[in-house]
Simulated scan of single mutants.
Amino acid sequence: MKDIRICLNPVCDRLVLGRSDKKYCCDGCRSAHYNDTKQEKKSDPLKRILKFQENNRDILREIFEKNEGKAIVSKSYLIGLGFNFMYHTHFMLTYKRKFLQCSFDYAIRVIDDYLVEVCRSIDDGPNSKLN
């Protein structure tokens, strides 16, 4: 049985296919990881965190817009797209006491151990769809 390998680029987390000594899923990830590690010593840690947060926001925006509103997706699907649950901008409690983990203006609400709801975080209020 072949070993399952994951791309060494920390933002990617895709499976690596091909040669047994291959470390990255594509040239873009190899280059990005090299540039990140090269600049990591020089860069501000806040910039690195912001990069993860922006990536999370872009993923949520894409899912939200593709589904024309709220969408329910699996956590594994988000992870497959590169979403990192450890990075977020803030937490929010909606009018109806729903707890949201926000990435700027988009948010996820945990439904159960496997599913999350993707929604907008700025719609909080008595007349919002988050009620």
Rank of each mutant, 00 (worst) to 15 (best):
F99Q: 11
I72M: 13
R19N: 12
L46Q: 12
Y95R: 00
L60Q: 02
F83P: 02
Y34T: 09
S121W: 02
I108M: 04
D27I: 09
C7W: 05
F83S: 03
G18L: 05
A71M: 14
K22P: 02
V116C: 05
L78E: 02
Y24W: 14
I59D: 02
D36G: 07
S76T: 13
I72N: 10
D36T: 05
A71V: 12
K47C: 09
D123M: 10
H90T: 11
L15C: 03
E65C: 09
T37W: 07
K98W: 00
N55Y: 11
F83M: 07
D112R: 00
P126K: 01
D27C: 05
D105N: 05
L8D: 08
K38L: 15
L15D: 07
N35F: 08
C26T: 01
E54N: 12
K75D: 06
V110C: 01
T89D: 06
Y87K: 01
T94L: 07
K66D: 06
K96Y: 11
Y24P: 10
R57Q: 09
L130D: 03
V16A: 04
E117M: 12
E117W: 01
P45Y: 07
V73I: 15
E40G: 06
L15N: 08
K129W: 02
D36L: 13
V110Y: 03
N35G: 07
L17I: 03
R109T: 00
K23Y: 00
I49R: 10
V116Q: 02
K41Q: 14
M86G: 06
G28E: 11
K70A: 09
G125E: 08
H90M: 11
D124Q: 09
Y77L: 13
V11N: 08
R48S: 12
S128G: 15
Y87W: 06
N55D: 14
L100R: 05
S43M: 14
A32I: 00
L130W: 01
H88Y: 10
L81K: 14
K70I: 11
E65D: 12
V16F: 07
N9V: 00
L100N: 04
C12Q: 07
K2L: 06
G28H: 08
Y87L: 02
G18R: 06
I4T: 01
C102M: 02
Y114R: 07
S43I: 12
Q53I: 08
I6R: 06
K2H: 06
V16W: 05
A32T: 01
D13F: 03
E54V: 14
R97M: 15
E40Q: 15
C12A: 05
Y34F: 11
K129Q: 05
K51M: 10
M92F: 00
K75M: 12
I79A: 11
K38V: 15
D21H: 12
L130I: 08
R19F: 09
Y87E: 03
F104S: 13
